[in-house]
Simulated assay, not measured.
Amino acid sequence: MAFEVRYTDCSAETYQAIKKIIELWRAKSPDYYVKTSGSTGTPKSILLKRDQLEASARRSNSFFGLNENSCVLMPLSAHTIGGKMMLIRALVGNYSIHVVEPRANPLEEIDPKSPYSFVSLVPYQVKCILEENPEKLTLFKNILLGGMGISPELEQTLSELKPRVYIGFGMTETVSHIALRKMNDPIYRALEGVHLEVSNNCLVITDSVLRIDRMQTNDEVDLIDSTQFKWLGRSDFAINSGGIKIHPEALENTIDEWIDGPFIIGSIPHETLGEACVLILEEAVSDEVFSQVQEVIREKFGKYAAPKQQILSPILKTENGKIRRKETLNALSK
């Protein structure tokens, strides 16, 4: 089975974006500019080299067992690094790729009798699929999730699925994921060629395969050894309340089951604590639910982590559904 692209219910924009990537790849262009998602700050353009993209594609294809007999589903935007790399992996591995329009539930129009070797999804898509077509997740041999918004309840559900479900750690600068972890296992394990260390409590990445030398990140981790770590949160998102460092991402994952709509944990200035945690969301929850949220967080993370109040504000998102935390918080402070 050679490389081919099949489309289902795709817009002209999606078709043209994919066509452009394929043409650029086949023209053997040495340079590829990719925009960051904007989930951790203002989107910026990153220059990646063809040999880096190809090396990353080969490494991922090898890990997930993808070859010329494979067929994968692409439900991500071709404008993101995740979508681009799905397409480039198929080009490098010479296998077929089925493209569907990126949406909340991308499996809605998929034939329930068509198996796939692989799919990459964002957590919001997985939640929608579990609500509407959970049986279709069994069509895949491997599922890769991007992003960190996975609650313990969602992890437990995904760990019980027949497919192997992984969550990736990486960024545009690392050409997609450089480490993976299985559902219900908190430990990320680096891919071949990746060496990890810590500087100023944050992860530093060296990757001989991608020719990355000591890339400093803002990700605070508990480093187990040079190839394994537990992710704690972003240092630039951390809240200091009463002298205690609090990672809002951990709080959000814990209370995700209690809140239906989009939300984040943020902070406001506090006279004695310095910063006080608050729950920022588009629609207020009841007093009863808010009290339960406070109690759950207090028991697991301590009294300073419990949000002091609810604040109603629009929650800004990227095109892939990731929350644009910094922009949401900046808009709140204006």
Rank of each mutant, 00 (worst) to 15 (best):
G193A: 01
D219S: 04
K127Y: 09
E132Q: 14
I21D: 09
R89I: 00
G233F: 11
L158A: 00
S60H: 03
Y95E: 03
Y116R: 03
V194A: 01
E155A: 02
Y33W: 15
A57Q: 01
G93S: 03
L196V: 01
G82F: 05
I143Y: 01
R50K: 07
M86C: 15
E319G: 07
L87H: 05
S37M: 05
F301C: 09
S37R: 01
G83R: 02
E108C: 07
N184A: 13
L47H: 10
W258G: 05
D207R: 04
N201T: 11
T272S: 12
G243P: 14
E252Q: 08
P75D: 07
G261Y: 11
H177W: 02
S37K: 00
P248D: 02
I259Q: 10
E68G: 10
I81W: 00
P123A: 00
A238Y: 08
R181I: 04
D51F: 14
K245C: 09
K49R: 15
L329E: 11
I167A: 12
R59F: 02
T227E: 05
L154W: 01
H195W: 10
A179F: 04
K84A: 06
L281M: 14
V99C: 13
T40W: 08
S199M: 08
L332F: 10
V92E: 12
A90F: 03
K49H: 15
L196T: 00
S29G: 06
E153G: 10
S70T: 01
P30Q: 01
K28S: 14
L76E: 08
L73F: 05
D236I: 02
L66D: 08
D51W: 08
L191Y: 02
C71Q: 14
D213A: 11
T328F: 07
N67T: 05
D260H: 12
T318C: 04
N133A: 11
P307I: 02
V209S: 12
K141R: 13
V198M: 12
K182G: 09
V278G: 06
G146Y: 00
G41T: 10
C277L: 06
K182Y: 07
Q310A: 07
L154R: 01
S208R: 13
E282K: 11
Q310S: 06
E220R: 15
E249G: 01
V72C: 15
G170W: 00
F63I: 15
I212Q: 05
E192K: 12
L232N: 14
T318E: 07
L223R: 04
D222S: 12
L154C: 02
K245L: 05
A179G: 05
I224C: 02
L47T: 05
F301V: 08
G93D: 01
D236L: 01
Q294N: 06
K44V: 10
L203N: 00
G149L: 11
S235P: 07
D222Q: 15
S199H: 15
